[in-house]
């Protein structure tokens, strides 16, 4: 069978089994909506500076968590073994898993964004750049979730492992403060974070400008992170599932 068809079949099944469930959909929407509303109520003019960062943060937490939870859960129930017995390459399985997690992240972020556009008059100055940020962020973070999940046995282990890098990323990636305003000693670390270019792309999408320069700069960095995460996730998955 076509390996692409196999990846799509895995994605459809995962969306049906896990991502389409009401608790996940409400979690993916309510958490960021409440955060942005809190900032909006406090400062109606300034919330736009934070909204792209919160959407990026939602993508980071939502996608890494979901990709990791699904794979760890399937490892425990033995259904991942069922998948490994099918005539599919490791690449196909990773792409299928990443695609469903990314679709979940993109869908919830889009609903959230459209809600803000409709009810809070949030502008979308460059919607294509915004969309590119969502796609690259969702893809990169899904791959990172897969890398974390194959290294552990339990869901809590995956969460603990990922929180070691997720929380520091919030601090250094321009989520709550533009990169240009950060102290000089943080800036080198900022450019090493996969969240930074995603937040900057979303910021350009909303406000039309970024402190990282024109859109192609964060886009190029985000593509590099996306490709690197994908390239690492496939051999990691193969190595950890083929003992």
């Amino acid at each position: 069978m076509s390996q692409i068809a196999g990846a799509l079949a895995i994605s459809r099944k995962d969306i049906e089994s896990y991502y389409g469930k009401p608790p996940l959909v409400t979690w993916g929407l309510l958490f960021p909506a409440v955060l942005i509303l809190a900032v909006y109520v406090k400062d109606r003019a300034g919330y736009l500076a934070v909204a792209p960062g919160i959407i990026g943060m939602t993508l980071l937490f939502g996608n890494t968590s979901m990709a990791a939870i699904v794979i760890t859960f399937e490892k425990r129930t033995g259904t991942l073994e069922r998948l490994l017995l099918a005539p599919l390459s490791a690449r196909t399985i990773v792409l299928g898993k990443a695609f469903s997690a990314a679709a979940y992240g993109i869908a919830t972020s889009l609903v959230l964004t459209l809600g803000f556009v409709a009810f809070l008059d949030m502008p979308l100055a460059r919607p294509v750049v915004f969309g590119l940020g969502l796609v690259l962020g969702a893809g990169t973070f899904s791959f990172l979730g897969i890398i974390a999940s194959v290294m552990v046995r339990e869901v809590f282990e995956a969460m603990t492992l990922m929180n070691f890098f997720r929380f520091p990323l919030l601090f250094v990636s321009g989520v709550f403060m533009p990169v240009a305003q950060m102290p000089w000693w943080i800036k080198p670390v900022t450019y090493l974070s996969p969240l930074t270019p995603v937040v900057e792309l979303l910021r350009i999408g909303v406000q039309g400008e970024s402190t990282l320069g024109p859109a192609w700069v964060p886009a190029s960095i985000a593509i590099l992170f996306f490709l690197a995460a994908g390239a690492v996730s496939i051999p990691s998955f193969r190595r950890c599932t083929m003992r």
Binding site: M1, R82, L83, A86, P87
Partner: peptide, 22 residues
């Protein structure tokens, strides 16, 4: 272990695996 997808219906389990096998 009987390792089909617990949340999927029996028919859907078979159809899904059929899809994976082309």
């Amino acid at each position: 272990n009987s390792n089909l997808y617990p949340e999927l219906r029996c028919r859907r389990n078979l159809e899904y695996l059929g899809e994976l096998y082309g």
